[in-house]
């Protein structure tokens, strides 16, 4: 029953699964994002307070959620790699870091563009914005630490430790709008209770969220293939793998 789980520790198996999954994940992402964009930009009604500026939610919120989700995946993979010494865990963590950093940057820049017309400023040292900026710095720290060692195995371990310790920032980002007075609005969809949006606005947002998740899966598959190849360059299975 658990065979499939144990196989996830095998680099050739992970390489093959990633190669097979990637086109399906990318196709699903394209469909979900296309629906989300069309419905969100053209058919969702304007917000009664923010007008059409609210439409920035369709990229800002999925980007922000993904910046946290990718971090959780990176931290979990790092913990698995540290505890069980599974090399694939380091490959998944190394593959996730630049993707997560790009989503954190997306959340910050799109949030800044939304903040200007709503708050009158591109930036404020608000708890949500500041903790998201710290998340971006942690991603950059994890990537820098990995490449700072001549011995890649030591770099992997150091980066994994920082990723696991840095997970403490994830609940701070999410609950910052609850714990402190914040300019930033509260949770819209990721919260207990019903989402505070009508269906015509909510469905495109959920579709964009799904699309971004699938997109992360697709890019992760490609990057994991590269990371596994870099770590297993001399292995016998690589000859067959790079032919295909």
């Amino acid at each position: 029953m658990w065979t499939w789980f144990y196989k996830l520790a095998s680099p050739p198996h992970v390489y093959g699964v990633a190669a097979a999954l990637m086109p399906w994940l990318l196709g699903g992402a394209a469909l979900a994002v296309a629906y989300g964009l069309i419905a969100g930009l053209a058919f969702a009604p304007p917000d009664y307070q923010q007008g059409d500026a609210f439409r920035m939610i369709y990229v800002h919120v999925p980007g922000a959620i993904l910046s946290l989700t990718v971090y959780m995946v990176m931290a979990a993979a790092s913990a698995v790699a540290l505890v069980w010494r599974i090399k694939v865990g380091h490959a998944v963590a190394a593959a996730s870091a630049p993707i997560g950093a790009s989503f954190a940057l997306m959340a910050l820049v799109t949030g800044s563009l939304w903040g200007r017309p709503m708050w009158g400023a591109y930036w404020a040292w608000d708890p949500r914005l500041t903790s998201e900026l710290i998340l971006l710095f942690i991603y950059i720290g994890v990537m820098s630490l990995r490449s700072a060692f001549e011995d890649p195995a030591r770099g992997d371990r150091a980066a994994a430790l920082l990723a696991v310790v840095g997970v403490v920032n994830v609940p701070i980002v999410h609950f910052s709008v609850v714990w402190w007075n914040s300019l930033h609005q509260g949770a819209t969809i990721v919260k207990l209770g019903t989402p505070s949006m009508p269906g015509s606005m909510l469905w495109p947002l959920l579709s964009m969220w799904l699309g971004f998740m699938l997109f992360y899966g697709a890019v992760l598959c490609t990057r994991v293939q590269a990371e596994v190849l870099n770590r297993e360059r001399q292995a016998a299975w690589v000859r067959e793998a790079i032919k295909s």
């Binding site: 964009l37 059409d52 920035m56 997306m106 799109t110 563009l113």
Partner: peptide, 9 residues
């Protein structure tokens, strides 16, 4: 604000 936001994403 809206179009640069979508463009950057």
């Amino acid at each position: 604000y809206v179009w640069p936001c979508f463009g950057f994403a």
